[in-house]
């Protein structure tokens, strides 16, 4: 599958396209195969996202997992600062990232 990601213009936070809006959580991302360019263009010009791009992902236990490690680090946060990630309480999150 293809999912769409970018950054929030104001805060720089990593966001994911949910089909109707942008979410901080990669679990909310939807497949955009075929329409990624059109959505990216529209959302960027409306300033709802900054620097959007589409990436490959696979479904993993019911939610999308980016295929490349760089996008998985982006999705969660720095592996060396679990306290600053989106899942500070999840001890297994490192396995999802790596």
């Amino acid at each position: 599958m293809r999912i769409l990601t970018g950054n929030d213009l104001k805060t720089g936070a990593v966001t994911w396209w949910t089909g109707s809006d942008w979410s901080l959580h990669v679990e909310d991302a939807v497949d955009v195969t075929g329409s990624e360019d059109e959505i990216a263009r529209r959302e960027e010009s409306a300033r709802r996202v900054n620097a959007p791009y589409a990436i490959d992902a696979t479904m993993d236990e019911g939610s999308p997992r980016p295929s490349h490690i760089k996008d998985r680090v982006r999705a969660i946060g720095p592996t060396v600062r679990p306290d600053l990630t989106l899942k500070p309480a999840d001890p297994d999150i490192g396995n999802w990232v790596i």
Binding site: T11, G12, A13, V14, N50, V73
Partner: peptide, 8 residues
């Protein structure tokens, strides 16, 4: 000011 992996 760069745009990096998690924010600016």
């Amino acid at each position: 000011l760069y745009l990096q992996l998690h924010a600016y």
